[in-house]
Design a protein around this nucleic acid. Sequence first.
DNA 1: ATTATTGTATTAAGTACTTAGTACAATAAT
DNA 2: ATTATTGTACTAAGTACTTAATACAATAAT
Lengths: 123, 123
Amino acid sequence: MSWDLKTDRPIYSQLIEQIEIKICSGIFAPGSKLPSVRELAQEAAVNPNTMQKALSMLEEDGLLYTNRTSGRFITEDAKMIEQAKHKLAQDQISEFLEKMKSLGFGKTETLSIISTMLEEAKK
Amino acid sequence: MSWDLKTDRPIYSQLIEQIEIKICSGIFAPGSKLPSVRELAQEAAVNPNTMQKALSMLEEDGLLYTNRTSGRFITEDAKMIEQAKHKLAQDQISEFLEKMKSLGFGKTETLSIISTMLEEAKK
DNA sequence: ATTATTGTATTAAGTACTTAGTACAATAAT
DNA sequence: ATTATTGTACTAAGTACTTAATACAATAAT
């Protein structure tokens, strides 16, 4: 489980992103139980308070829910997860194209750059 | 001149990114004089200290240089700017493909998603 | 019943970032 | 010569983030 955290951004927000990704990619399976706050915190080499903050904020989106003392669980709603996944993908793409545009690369140009990159990689 | 700054990340680092982009995209032309620290700070609605921090850090890369009291200037070295531009683009692409991969989208899959997005946009 | 584990809350301390305000030295402009 | 503008430096204050250390209530496990 990779938790590479950078120092140029609040840790809790990076945790939110990465947990969301683990859920959307299936690393954290629907309906399964999450490790405890303390375990997750240790895994990520982070203070339990920080992990708690990230998890409680994540719950607002509905991808997680808490059973008071038995722990936290991933939603069983596979459709919700699928939607979240596609929203994340769309956001990534939009943000990416936006940045490329600001550098002076139009959408089709950006597309062709990636295409040729992948062609090169195949060789 | 758009300076949209978000609160989820240090301002000075966002300033660095955006100034770098303005240089690479030609908004700040090679050899031209930058507005003063105080002007830029006012434009970006930021404290002069913060702008100063960003600018002095940017100089380390060589895209800017200072003439003690006449101001700051963009490098005349167009080749250096071109290199910086392509490095930024490469970094953006790598980061993007990485994130898409973590979501479960392979490179070719990501490419086809963007392709169809652009096709849709044309209609 | 007792114990361990769960999420949660609180307080205190340290660090980084940002701002406001002020000041200084060098030099371009007058 | 004088003035204005340049980058730069400094201190003080406030805020947000992170950590450490504890503690508590609820409940699963024993």
